[in-house]
Design a protein around this nucleic acid. Structure first.
Lengths: 245, 245
DNA sequence: GACTTTCACTGACTTAGATCAACCAAACAG
DNA sequence: CTGTTTGGTTGATCTAAGTCAGTGAAAGTC
């Protein structure tokens, strides 16, 4: 049996709320706060803060679109369900990201969304969003950009599920999270996973046990250090070559 | 070795073009041909027929959106490619279906599309489409409906790739094709597969050989009859229970 | 603080499906 | 018409990852 050092990593940092600058709808807020526009959107958004506890539902598939959500702090999972009850997680959303925009197409939510931990969101009612997307053209642009990123993310997940092995899947997952934390001004090398091993396995199409084993092997190989949900990436280059990014 | 009867199936029917009534953009054509609108859209569409031979490319990922396509006859595959060259087919499109609408979000194509056989399409230039979607509100509705179906199809594929075994995958695939042929007024029980076993395997995330083996087993079990690309579904109920639909 | 539940991890074993290799039939090219 | 290529099928073998079972640690709960 190989000796594994099981290196300690720092305590989880307090989950601080994102600044508006790092928020996915900052573009929207900034636009309506330009020289010639009033503060109504920002005010509406700021007034509509909502808190979801771990496990609470934001919306269900098929429900009429009420609002889209920007995550100020915390994290959320999106998933779809078969008629025989099997679940496929289709995305994790972290602080600063926006979800629910896919619902704009059909005017109803296309998936279910559930908080992974205590999560504070800015709720943007759809009528407010639509009114402003008419008044301020670049809001429309911003929304389309987020929606097209959603399509690309889905395609990337299809590729991962259809064509990658377990090592590639987990490496891809960790590097994607890393990149997204960096974009929101968090550390790209050290972060806390708010989802369970089981959720990761579900998302990546592998068994929970396999997720654990790959984590352990990556740790043995000096690629990263983990302690439960705290992760420290030690060799991003090698992870990239494993993920084939 | 079990004796397999290898039942004969009828010759492939001639691939006849879809009637406008069965076409995915019929709603659009009909709208602009209502009592108070002129014939410009239909004329534009009918004038812009294009023929693609097997293997020819309709568009590449990243190319600026020029037009969307309605298939009059033939079939097309959409796919995405990793930077190391692996391919994941994300959809097959048959006669009567519309493709390219996903590109409206980012104003550029999100995947590559290639003809599986000699394929006749109605090309709808994006400026024509946009002009009419302003004039005729229900065209916008029709487009949104097709786009939301695309999102749902992607989610279904993620679920299939992440959570289903080989039998479920192939049964799901065949029943999905069957339903779509039926919608376009073709036989739901007997049809021609325009894609190779290798393409089916790629789409469903399984090896070509596994696709063959499952076809053979389904045939042995009396669920269907195949001869190369010609398929006859013999027991849709049992297929449904396998697919868990 | 004791009890229960949940979660992460590990080992032993099994298996679905991949890979490798070969063959045949149809389609195609000259 | 003949040689060549492509696509579909099958058998033999291998292996990556799933399943089952058990343990310990952490996090809730009363």
């Amino acid at each position: 049996m190989p000796i594994r050092p099981a290196p300690r990593v720092a305590e989880p940092e307090v989950c601080s709320p994102v600044t508006c600058k790092d928020c996915g709808i900052y573009g929207l807020c900034r636009e309506v706060n330009g020289p010639d526009v009033d503060l109504r959107l920002l005010e509406t958004i700021v007034r509509n803060r909502k808190l979801f506890k771990r496990g609470e539902l934001l919306y269900r598939v098929g429900e009429p679109l009420r609002a889209v959500y920007a995550i100020r702090s915390g994290s959320i999972k999106s998933y779809v369900v078969t008629n025989d009850g099997r679940v496929q997680i289709t995305g994790f959303h972290i602080t600063g990201e926006v979800l629910g925009l896919g619902a704009l197409v059909a005017n109803q939510y296309m998936s279910e969304a559930r908080a992974l931990e205590t999560t504070m969101v800015c709720e943007v009612p759809v009528d407010v969003l639509e009114a402003y997307s008419v008044e301020v053209p670049s809001i429309r642009q911003q929304m389309l950009k987020i929606m097209s990123q959603e399509i690309l993310d889905n395609q990337e997940l299809m590729l991962l599920l259809g064509k990658k092995n377990s090592d590639e899947r987990l490496a891809t997952f960790l590097l994607s999270l890393s990149r997204r934390f960096q974009r929101r001004s968090y550390s790209p090398t050290q972060f806390n996973l708010s989802m369970s091993r089981s959720d990761i396995g579900n998302y990546l199409g592998m068994a929970e046990e396999t997720v654990c084993r790959v984590f352990t092997r990556f740790q043995d190989d000096g690629l990263l250090a983990t302690e439960r949900r705290q992760v420290k990436l030690l060799d991003q280059d090698r992870l990239k070559s494993i993920a084939r990014i």
